[in-house]
Design a protein around this nucleic acid. Structure first.
Length: 980
DNA sequence: ACGGCCACTTA
DNA sequence: GTAAGTGGCCGTC
């Protein structure tokens, strides 16, 4: 290291009357970023949320001091930043802080702005190559102390606690906590002078300080208190009684010594700016106000102007230098480059992500290391840990699968890979019979108390909550009064990154990324008839299962989150995935009313109809058989009666599908059409009229579906328990079921649906002039297609001609084949092929688009929607021509279906706020791919309709302007059938 | 009791 | 021809 001479200051040395405040810039920046909703500057969309938060915090600190207690006027004041790039610690330990994911894309341009903001307030912004902010803070604090002054360090970083003395105090403003010697002792179990010794043993996963395996804070403090310091301990390690601990201390002695050098702050940095220069001076109003004006922070600008006496109107905005961001969209590669440069990282994000994955998956899962939390103190320790690292993996255990009914049984947490706890809350004695069981097991914190302790942390903007399938945990906890925020979801991270590569469930992800099989639920609760609910599981067994889930979730997050930036999927995740969690959770919570009586009546009608048909069928067949059995039916139709069999199923049996039966009916046979009718009726009865009432929630009296965000390859949602996305509409009988979905008294339902959204998306993506023109002119798209293809005028067109064109349009969206079109239209393969040929001649752009898509998927293994969502087809290059063509069709369809899904997602994410801002009480209840269903007071119908329509039609903006208008139609009624 | 198959429902 | 979920039957465990 080249020794640098400290610059001599002309300012006087500090005295015991002086008070130096050192602000840890990183703490401020990251708190400001995570604590506040994203904010962008008006004209150009520059992200400024963190800048705004930082300025407010800095200004407050300058006005009031760090806290009331230590709020005596500072005489010296500076903000210390980390300089990006390598530090001296990396010279002897390259892995130091290597786990850190790169900063989020929208934070990157704000680093520079925040330094400029600091200077605009007349405060020194200090950073120095090769040193971390902590080292500079240590050096300045010791220098000031040596001169007799008092020092207050403002930071949330526990590494700085080693500096605390009578003269040097610490304040964590975010948590409103003053840290002196007693607080350090409470945290580390030793005084500030021994903090380094303890940390070198316990390690720190956040900074990637290894420490000694198996030794946490508690044990470390114990050992240091016994042996005095690290060196003495390592010398006498062979005297330790506990076998594993002794072995580890001997084996990892060198690792502990390295850890000590990592956590030991450098207190003699040859600083470029002397501490004497930090003298507080009056704020130059013109500078500060100029900067704030340029940022567009109106209320702070006014405050600062008032205080400094600057005349707001006379000050011109001072535009700061902006690095790492441009207001106009630019190619992805460029964004990557400039972002990399800005932070001066030697690595790009992708190799970092790989490195993280390798390290996390190498650490074995040890279920015996997990803790069962049974006291308030223990719980508090875990909560404190979450605050400390700023994130925590959370998993709730419940007594049922359905989030709207399940009771909370316990919560598990993890902040460090390999370390996790389970907090049992409602485990009951499983012994005894059905009635006597149910006594709470001992060693559990009362549920309400535990929730009261957890709630502030789970809702605190400073702590990121991480879960696998957050919607479930969010819903369960919401029912206990907790609204978790902010959060990440590992299932959605995986979905954004790898849709189509396989499932996104935790077991599968654990297998894929950690090469680890978590304890199967079956092993804990059994299965089938002997299955027990989780509240009956003994605490030790529950802990190894539940805590493992939190551990695995945290590890998956550490692996998947850095990939987001590396693979440019941040925007997809943050705009299209994550915000849907709360949106959908709220919809599920609201549920929808159904008319139980009406369904019951229908069930009766369907039963009668089916019974009558069944009798006829048996009569015509000449024997009694199970009509619901395709096998028995096949034997009768194609065996006994000798009818000509058409298709075979893939298992070799005669197909009795509706299309086959329809063909037979067309040949003049009576039985087949009766079968078709019977099947339709029994389907309506069993799946809808019988099943729906069983989904009515006891407490709410409504039906709460569960939407799945990550179970399609294209980005569509799916719905289950019950599936409300396939409620009948085609037949008159089926529509009666829709009538049973009703609005509450005094309310109405609105159904708003996109008209032809997929064809519009296709027209935009494939850039087809005639289609775009037709949509712009509001024409009947199928008639227009027919007119182009067959040369017939739209007026007075034969409905059959239009029907053919419609089938072709749908076929195009599905990745058309002559085989499929022929089936659909009941024409020959050759004829269908001719239609397709004609179509491609009239719309050459479509053909080109389909060929390009195929080329793309073969080259890349995935395709993309207009908003960048990816659908992967890892097997598209298979040699099997049928499979290959299947994947190609799916790849053609995915960008179209997926883009439409993206669009409605954007509308949904925005909808609640839009309605609320307009003071409307409408509530979004359901989504059916291109349709949204709302419930609202009947006197707000007109206004709501208008707002819903614009929100949906403008959903791509401002990110994207389609070259085709989107059209939404909305109707209101007291039931879904009439509204649709 | 579980899972595959077939049928039906939707966009 | 794309994307889903559910229910009944039936063979296997």
């Amino acid at each position: 290291m080249i020794p640098l001479m400290s610059t001599q200051s002309i300012a006087p040395a500090l005295t015991e009357n002086d008070h130096l405040i050192l602000i840890d810039g990183s703490t401020f920046i990251f708190r400001a970023y995570h604590a506040l909703p994203p904010l962008t500057r008006k004209p150009d969309g520059l992200p400024v949320g963190a800048v705004s938060g930082f300025c407010n915090m800095l200004w407050k600190m300058m006005q009031e001091g760090p806290t009331k207690e230590t709020g005596d006027e500072p005489t010296h004041f500076a903000v210390i930043f980390d300089k990006s790039g390598k530090t001296f610690r990396n010279d002897f330990y390259p892995e130091y802080k290597a786990h850190r994911p790169p900063p989020p894309e929208d934070l990157r341009p704000q680093f520079g702005l925040i330094r400029q903001a600091t200077r605009a307030f007349g405060v020194p912004a200090i950073e120095q190559q090769g040193y971390e902010a902590d080292d500079l803070i240590a050096t300045y604090a010791r220098q000031a102390e040596a001169q007799g002054a008092r020092v207050t360090i403002v930071s949330g970083d526990k590494d700085l606690m080693q500096l605390v003395t009578d003269k040097i105090g610490m304040v964590d403003t975010m948590k409103n906590k003053v840290i002196g010697k007693p607080e350090v002792f409470e945290k580390f179990g030793v005084g500030p002078e021994k903090v380094v010794e303890v940390q070198s043993l316990a390690g720190d996963s956040v900074d990637n300080v290894p420490g000694v395996p198996g030794i946490g804070l508690k044990t470390a403090a114990l050992l240091i208190n016994e042996f005095g310091d690290l060196d003495s301990l390592l010398e006498q390690a062979d005297t330790i009684k506990q076998k594993k601990r002794r072995e580890n201390l001997i084996e990892f002695a060198e690792q502990a010594r390295i850890s000590k050098r990592l956590v030991q702050l450098e207190e003699a940095v040859p600083v470029e700016t002397p501490v004497e220069d930090f003298t507080v001076c009056d704020v130059d109003g013109a500078q500060a106000v100029g900067f704030l004006k340029a940022m567009g922070f109106t209320s702070l600008t006014k405050k600062v102007a008032d205080k400094t006496g600057a005349v707001l109107e006379n000050i011109e905005p001072i535009e700061p230098v902006i690095e790492g961001w441009e207001s106009t969209a630019k190619p992805a590669e460029q964004a990557e480059d400039s972002a990399g440069e800005l932070e001066g990282k030697a690595w790009t994000a992708a190799p970092l992500a790989e490195k993280v994955a390798a390290e996390i998956s190498a650490l074995p899962v040890d279920n015996s290391a997990y803790e069962t939390v049974s006291t308030i103190e223990h719980l508090k320790e875990w909560i404190a840990q979450a605050y400390e690292v700023g994130y925590v993996a959370v998993d709730t255990e419940t007594d049922a699968l359905n989030a709207m009914e399940a009771g909370l049984v316990g919560v598990s947490l993890s902040c460090t890979p390999g370390k996790a706890c389970y907090i049992p809350l409602a485990h009951v004695d499983g012994e005894g019979d059905l009635f006597s069981g149910g006594a709470l097991v001992e060693g559990q914190i009362p549920l309400q108390e535990a929730i009261a302790l957890l709630k502030p942390m789970l809702e605190d903007p400073a702590v990121l909550k991480i879960a696998q399938n957050m919607k479930y945990d969010w819903l369960v906890l919401k029912r206990y009064g907790v609204e978790m925020a902010p959060f990440d979801d590992t299932m959605l991270l995986s979905y954004a990154l790898d849709a189509g590569m396989g499932g996104n469930g935790m077991d599968e992800l654990s297998q894929r990324w950690l090469n680890h099989t978590p304890i199967p639920f079956k092993e804990v609760c059994g299965s089938g008839k002997s299955q027990i609910s989780f509240d009956k599981v003994p605490l030790d067994k529950a802990t190894s299962y539940a805590a493992e889930d939190a551990d695995v979730t945290l590890r998956l997050w550490k692996i998947l989150k850095p990939r987001l930036a590396a693979e440019e999927m941040t925007v997809v995740y943050e705009r299209l995935e994550r915000p849907m969690v709360a949106t959908l959770a709220k919809m599920e919570r609201r549920g929808i009313s159904i008319d139980r009586q009406m369904l019951s009546l229908l069930s009766g009608e369907f039963a009668q109809g089916a019974a009558a048909l069944e009798a006829e069928i048996h009569d015509k067949a000449g024997e009694i058989f199970n009509v619901g059995s395709p096998k028995q039916l096949g034997e009768i139709l194609f065996g006994k009666m000798g009818l000509p069999g058409g298709k075979k199923t893939k298992t070799g049996a005669w197909s009795t599908s509706a299309s086959v039966l329809d063909d037979l009916a067309a040949q003049g046979h009576e039985l087949p059409s009766k079968i078709v009718e019977w099947r339709q009726l029994s389907k309506l009865k069993s799946t809808y009229t019988d099943a729906l009432p069983s989904f009515i929630n006891q407490e709410t009296g409504r039906v709460h579906t569960s939407f799945s965000l990550a179970s399609t390859s294209t980005g569509r949602l799916s719905s289950s328990e019950p599936n409300i996305q396939n409620i009948p509409i085609r037949t008159a009988e089926g529509r009666k079921i829709r009538q049973a979905f009703i609005a509450e008294k005094g309310k109405k339902l609105i159904s708003a649906d996109y008209s032809q959204i997929e064809l519009r998306v296709l027209a935009h993506m494939a850039d087809i002039p005639q289609l775009k023109q037709a949509f712009a002119d509001g024409l009947d798209i199928h008639a227009m297609t027919a007119s182009e293809m067959f040369g017939e005028p739209i007026e007075g067109m034969d409905p059959m001609v239009r029907r053919r064109a419609k089938a072709i349009n749908f076929g195009i969206i599905y990745g058309i084949s002559a085989f499929g079109l022929a089936n659909q239209l009941g024409i020959s393969r050759g004829e269908a092929g001719d239609y397709i040929k004609t179509y491609f001649e009239r719309f050459p752009g479509i053909k080109e688009y389909m060929e390009e898509t195929k080329k793309f998927v073969h080259a890349n293994g995935y395709v993309e929607t207009i908003f960048g969502r990816r659908a992967h087809y890892p097997d598209v290059n298979t040699k099997n021509p049928n499979m290959r063509q299947f994947y190609e069709r799916a790849a053609i369809n995915a960008p179209i279906q997926g883009s439409a899904a993206d669009i409605i997602r954007r509308a949904m994410v925005r909808m609640d706020e839009v309605l609320e801002t307009a003071n409307l009480d409408a509530q979004m209840l359901l989504q059916v791919h291109d349709e949204l269903i709302f419930e609202l007071p009947e006197d707000q119908v007109d206004e709501t309709k208008k707002l819903v329509i614009t929100t949906m039609e403008k959903a791509t903006e401002p990110a994207l302007q389609l070259s085709v208008p989107l059209k939404v139609e909305a109707e209101a009624a007291t039931n879904w059938e009439e509204a649709h």
